[in-house]
Write a protein that binds this DNA or RNA. Structure first.
Lengths: 335, 335
DNA sequence: AGACATGTTGTAAACGATTTCATTTTTTGT
DNA sequence: ACAAAAAATGAAATCGTTTACAACATGTCT
């Protein structure tokens, strides 16, 4: 029973029509007569025919998939975004290819490669540090930046990072804190920069003086949060509350602080950023800024599909609002 | 400069050779003369030629990608596995397509679809609940089951789950616990079953009586862990230590227990399963069974590539050892 | 009835590569 | 120097679709 996979030819033969008619029945049923359509459908059923996407894509001059370039696939933050993109792309008949920008050596070259290779009809770029050297490549597919972005260069979907930072600081100030510190992400990262800026703005709005020594540098990872905690623990003149630029850092920070025998929020109040799922189950549950990850993924996919549809490389950007999720990691300061 | 993308024809023309020679220079350089090869390479450079993968794949009768079917893309557990698979597939010139088996309505139909559609040259199946009704489809691509598995039906890559469970129980017993409970995953899940079995075996090995009322049913999520905690808190004759079938449940459990004012490990010892990254930063840090996720992803990809290469649908299975990571969530029982 | 629109179908040319087979060119052995 | 073997190349078929164009049938309007 080494039965071959059947092609459109087999269907045409079985239905007694031409391949053109079979093709039309599948992709534009309106133009074929009711009776023929039924015959073709029956032939498809009896032959077990499946369209060969490779052949279709070759003829249609497209690839049928979208590629997501992520800085670090292992980061759980992205998992939910991928799920959301997938939920939009699958019904639209697009596959979702995944690639890690950090994995190999020359990330930028690989980005250009993806742009030129025709492997994908569109590209979602989650890594703001990658600027394809020349974006004005003739026939390149549309790109949308997500989460991170490059000023003006590409359409993007992102949250209002500065606003999130301001919400965090305001929340701490309203709890009575006057000594508020901040932990940044990698210094060149756009997210780090805007959140730091929002932090500074709200500090000013609250009439608080910025203290450069209360701004710690992290890299978004839990370990870096723990490192900052050790610095914080070692200093005497230290902030009574911290806004950290990612939940992961906040987790690392709280873990290390608690490990040292101090308590959150009694000894230090903490606000994170992202609202990853786990933080609601911590002790104490972490107050944080929610990024609607599902929405980000969906919108990125939708906007990209729109650009592909109209075959344009420019398109609208979208800024998604954030909200503060108050939990138990913030309390009024001591004394 | 609305310059068209150049094809192999353009290269052939520029180099003054036939397309066959260009093709050979690219995929089988050995057979073409040094001098022509150089001329062709130069022509490729000057035309900016990139091979069209769709055309190549059509001719070669393959799709050039592998698809990973995951029960729940949003689950961070899988992120690292994807990263690992990607690191193997990318150098081998395969793309990685991602699909969510839970997203739509009829998961099993979609699985069959992927098997028949020719969209992928191979398939990694992370969802043990999906048994493609008939695996003996004539020309179907190879499948490898990962993490979860179906008895005998498919080659698989998985960890020694029962052994992990035994390590966990032994660790608790060695700390002095005699009242040891267990929280399972979904009851029909193969992982739940083998871990439960390992739990029972080691209980017996330690001369401890199994107590059915100390076996709680969860579903691997944090929320289900929290629900179990509430049941545990409400009972009087309760275990002094629990082995939970996933880290996520352990997180939920510890969170709820601590929230209720009890302490881990003073009031209850806890062991999880998976060793997801966050658990090392919890307070207390969670003792758990490590699953080498990177290794799982790599081996799954490698075995699958092997099967694709030899175009066989059967292949070897692999059981990867686990290890216990002792941390702070286990202590001797009270009194 | 003739002209014309409308609806349905088939023919055949793409899409851009790979690869078989035949043909040329070069090398080798005597 | 000539035949035979080896190496390098090209012509053309092929992979499985889609689609522009032509062709035919049918119906409608004067």
């Amino acid at each position: 029973m080494d039965q071959k996979i059947s092609t459109i030819q087999d269907v045409a033969r079985a239905a007694g029509v031409s391949t053109a008619t079979v093709s039309r029945t599948l992709s534009n049923p309106g133009v074929v007569a009711e009776s023929t359509r039924e015959a073709v459908m029956e032939a498809i059923r009896s032959t077990g025919y499946r369209v060969n996407h490779t052949a279709r894509n070759l003829r249609r001059q497209r690839s049928g998939s979208v590629i997501a370039l992520m800085p670090n696939l292992a980061n759980p933050f992205f998992a939910q975004i991928i799920a959301a993109m997938s939920s939009v792309l699958t019904p639209a008949q697009y596959g979702l290819l995944i690639a890690d920008t950090q994995a190999g050596p020359d990330a930028e070259a690989r980005l250009s490669h993806y742009l030129l290779s025709g492997l994908a009809d569109g590209l979602v770029l989650f890594d703001g540090s990658l600027t394809p050297s020349r974006l004005d490549i003739p026939g390149r597919p549309p790109i949308i930046a997500a989460c991170e972005w490059m000023d003006g260069a590409l359409p993007s979907v992102r949250v209002d990072n500065a606003c999130g930072a301001r919400l965090a600081v305001r929340h701490l100030a309203e709890a009575g804190h006057r000594r508020i510190g901040h932990v940044t992400g990698p210094p060149r990262n756009v997210l780090s920069v805007s959140r730091l800026q929002g932090f500074r703005e709200e500090l000013a709005a609250q009439g608080l003086e910025p203290r450069p020594d209360w701004i710690y540098e992290g890299d978004f990872t839990m370990d870096s949060g723990a490192m900052v905690a050790r610095k914080w623990l070692a200093s005497t003149d230290r902030p009574s509350a911290l806004f950290l630029s990612s939940d992961e850092m906040a987790i690392g920070f709280m873990g290390a602080v608690q490990h040292a025998g101090l308590r959150v929020p009694e000894d230090v109040s903490v606000v994170g950023f992202d609202n990853i799922e786990v933080v609601g189950h911590l002790t104490p549950a972490l107050t944080t800024i929610r990024q609607p990850r599902t929405l980000i993924g969906e919108r990125a996919a939708e906007l990209l599909l729109g650009m592909i549809e109209e075959s344009r490389t420019d398109g609208p950007s979208e800024v998604i609002p954030v909200e503060l999720i108050p939990r138990a990691s913030v309390a009024p300061p001591r004394e």
